[in-house]
Amino acid sequence: MLARIGLDEAETARIGVELEKILDHISRLQQVDTSALTETAQVGELVNVMRDDVPEPPRGAAAALRNAPRSDGHHFVVGAIQANELDA
């Protein structure tokens, strides 16, 4: 559900078996002693990259909406969001 992919039963069963095999393989990682190691999220040496706070002309709503499956000319249009769905 976290992945937000609606699989049918057959797909769930098939992909479940495949993922199990993959997880079984990659679990060998647990055997590596990493107690003295820090994490690497990215290999670059750059930190806190800043740029000048200069306004640039926006691309505009029309360009942003050009690829929208549904819009009303000013906004993206989606189905109603209901409170009980947020927990679904």
Partner: peptide, 24 residues
Amino acid sequence: YDGVRFGLREEQPSLTDMYLRTRA
């Protein structure tokens, strides 16, 4: 890739179902 701003959308009455069907 959730069907809102670009690309494929599988229309569904509810937003969550739209996400699920679009990505599937």
